[in-house]
Simulated assay, not measured.
Amino acid sequence: MKNQLLLPDEIVKKDNQIIRTKLEIPGVEGARILAALISRIKTNEPFNPNKIYSIAVKDIIKNPDGHSYQKIKTVCKELLKSSAEIELYNDTSEEDEFIGFPFFSAIQYKKGIISAKFNFLMEKMLFKLTECFTEYSLTEYLQLSSIYSQRIFEILKSYSNLPDKEKIIPIEELHKYLSTPKSQITNFGLFQEKILKKAHKEIISKTDFYFEYEPIKGGKGGRTSPVTAVRFIFSKKKIEPVKEKKEKEDKEKTAKNNNKNFLAAWNCVKSCKGNCDTLSKKPNKAACTICKTKNLLEEVLKKQEEHCPSEKITPQKTTYKSGGIEVEQANFFEILENKNE
């Protein structure tokens, strides 16, 4: 892995309850500080409310400057209010139960050193863990540059040892875990592009953890049905068919977009007859690129001459300014190139 931070390869260990839930953490830096402080807890260490755990800012941020230190101070203030939220649903009671678990009882920031005391509520969540917990490399975690990559990494790590090597997470639950922006909750396509794909790419390229995923749709509407859950796969045997399916879908999507842009470029050339200035609406850049690389104007002129020689299309002269001098230009491709500069 490239650009690793200078920190020992320590282990972060958490109870699954505070991983598979909603967390209130101030961004990437806050998550890194929290993970680094948790990694200082030794295996089988008993909880001591007065014990202080410390880390150096230089271990969290590479080449920190004055601005970085100021930002860390602000993050530390916000970390003091950070918590894990757990909701318990009771079938026999009219009311469900909500519990908030603050991570720290105190935080100090002084001369580049962050020191903290863990809240007593963290005793069962971070100390002397023997079952239902997840552990991962702090060094790998610190490579992740997005809060969504960080959360997806530890959430999926907590499920990666399931017997069937896969986990289906309902979409509502996944949004809760990630605190997904409202604009993406109702638009899975946007959620997939902005969060899932980017997190997947970063995690498999910067850590040793590999997984694939595929959306699961509900209802009987076929492709138009809404996504109701996401299936995450950790088994190499199960990953291959999912990976092949995604690659096939990506190729089909690319081909569809290429065909759409080619048609737009073709219609554009036929309508403007080589004179881009006559267009009331300019085509997209992809269509312009296809037009130039495929010599579409020459193709249109050739087709027109073959089928209607008496109505042959000829490029119109266009006047444009180049370096303050007006120039007449009949070459469609040079005109197009000047328009794109």
Rank of each mutant, 00 (worst) to 15 (best):
residue 10 E to R: 15
residue 17 Q to Y: 12
residue 20 R to A: 01
residue 21 T to P: 03
residue 25 I to Y: 08
residue 32 R to I: 02
residue 36 A to D: 04
residue 38 I to D: 01
residue 41 I to Q: 11
residue 43 T to N: 13
residue 51 K to I: 06
residue 55 I to N: 03
residue 59 D to N: 14
residue 60 I to C: 10
residue 61 I to Y: 03
residue 64 P to S: 00
residue 71 K to L: 14
residue 75 V to T: 15
residue 82 S to K: 00
residue 84 A to N: 06
residue 85 E to K: 05
residue 87 E to M: 05
residue 93 S to K: 14
residue 96 D to W: 11
residue 96 D to I: 05
residue 99 I to R: 04
residue 100 G to H: 08
residue 104 F to N: 04
residue 104 F to H: 02
residue 108 Q to M: 07
residue 112 G to F: 06
residue 113 I to A: 14
residue 113 I to G: 10
residue 114 I to Y: 04
residue 119 N to Q: 05
residue 122 M to D: 01
residue 123 E to A: 08
residue 127 F to V: 04
residue 129 L to V: 03
residue 131 E to S: 12
residue 138 L to D: 03
residue 150 Q to V: 07
residue 155 I to W: 10
residue 155 I to Q: 08
residue 164 D to W: 02
residue 165 K to L: 14
residue 180 T to W: 09
residue 182 K to D: 15
residue 183 S to A: 13
residue 185 I to D: 07
residue 191 F to M: 10
residue 193 E to G: 02
residue 197 K to I: 04
residue 203 I to M: 03
residue 206 K to W: 02
residue 208 D to G: 15
residue 212 E to H: 08
residue 214 E to R: 11
residue 214 E to M: 10
residue 215 P to R: 09
residue 220 K to A: 04
residue 225 S to I: 01
residue 225 S to V: 11
residue 225 S to N: 15
residue 227 V to W: 11
residue 228 T to D: 04
residue 231 R to F: 02
residue 235 S to E: 05
residue 242 V to A: 05
residue 242 V to L: 03
residue 244 E to I: 12
residue 244 E to V: 10
residue 249 E to P: 02
residue 255 A to L: 03
residue 257 N to E: 08
residue 271 S to L: 09
residue 273 K to T: 07
residue 282 K to C: 10
residue 283 P to L: 13
residue 283 P to E: 02
residue 285 K to F: 08
residue 286 A to K: 15
residue 287 A to Y: 02
residue 287 A to S: 12
residue 288 C to W: 15
residue 292 K to W: 11
residue 300 V to M: 01
residue 303 K to Y: 11
residue 307 H to W: 09
residue 312 K to S: 15
residue 315 P to I: 03
residue 317 K to M: 05
residue 318 T to N: 11
residue 320 Y to P: 00
residue 327 V to N: 11
residue 329 Q to W: 03
residue 336 L to A: 08
